[in-house]
Design a protein around this nucleic acid. Sequence first.
DNA 1: CCGAACCAGTTGCAGTTCGCAATCGGTTCA
DNA 2: TGAACCGATTGCGAACTGCAACTGGTTCGG
Lengths: 171, 171
Amino acid sequence: MSADHRSGCPINLSLEVLGDKWSLLIIRDMMFGNRRHFRALLTDSEEGIASNILADRLTRLTDLGMITSAPDPSHKQRILLSLTEPAIQLVPVLAHLGAWGRRHLPVTRELAIRAELLERGGQPLWDDFMDELRELHLGIARPAGTPSVLDGLTEAYLAELKADRGAAGVT
Amino acid sequence: MSADHRSGCPINLSLEVLGDKWSLLIIRDMMFGNRRHFRALLTDSEEGIASNILADRLTRLTDLGMITSAPDPSHKQRILLSLTEPAIQLVPVLAHLGAWGRRHLPVTRELAIRAELLERGGQPLWDDFMDELRELHLGIARPAGTPSVLDGLTEAYLAELKADRGAAGVT
DNA sequence: CCGAACCAGTTGCAGTTCGCAATCGGTTCA
DNA sequence: TGAACCGATTGCGAACTGCAACTGGTTCGG
């Protein structure tokens, strides 16, 4: 045993870990944006997280066992962040949450395409994606021949971005 | 258009609605505990929400279109709270979130049984449950003959409670 | 018909967290 | 060698949180 929880309800405990405005966004960016260190999360953040809050959440998520950090061999001062297995298993939660938001909230088209593909792919796609994340973050090789889900999502996003800029007229 | 959002990402927008420690717990209690007015949510809350925070979240969730309130015909001063269709469609999200918490966090056995049943039942059970919620909260009759998912979950919870007390010895 | 319990909140207050901007000391790159 | 980059830290005002007491009205039991 460890901490003082408000209750032993699974949903409550999940919210104690993830129930704030930033933690899931950080995990989302590590998952779908493949951002693996502090600066990448800070400056490429769509929502503009502050550096102190990012630092706080990273240590918090590390303490909770959702991410791990290790020195990056290529850059001496860079720290490589990785998702742990529990965090990788959030893929279905994020997929459903994205699907729900896409259906009921004023999403931007180019930012919604990934949620749409993820919803359409369903559990089989999520499984492939989790295998890919295990390879990227845990070093566990995935079955040969499976195409990259991350590449597919990213390509669709970029295509949507281009189409959108084309339709609207670039500045 | 309406408000100033941090970004148009579906996950971000969902978190702007649900990304705090209490909103989803209130929806959970309305869904699975069938609590339909202020006092019920306040005093039967497993986690002990404060009255001012409950009041704040209820108006907030109402403004966001997640719940509606109406005078209760039986009790003149009582206000009946109902989930809206978007809130009802959170069932899969809550099911996955509960399943994840059950797998990775120190849940209590009697509070985990509902998450377990919900996970085992999968999408078909969630569909039945959403139909039942539409009947309870929106007044839309569900297909005849379908058994109550809510009753099933509640019975399993109570049975687990009893078994637990039996095993541990009642005080 | 009267008092107790119940109803949905509100108020005041202290402590914590949030978001922002500036900054830090060290590292890498040109 | 100097500029850019690295993961943070600090200071500050504003916003949010949690707690306890309280309000004005309603219902229920005897």
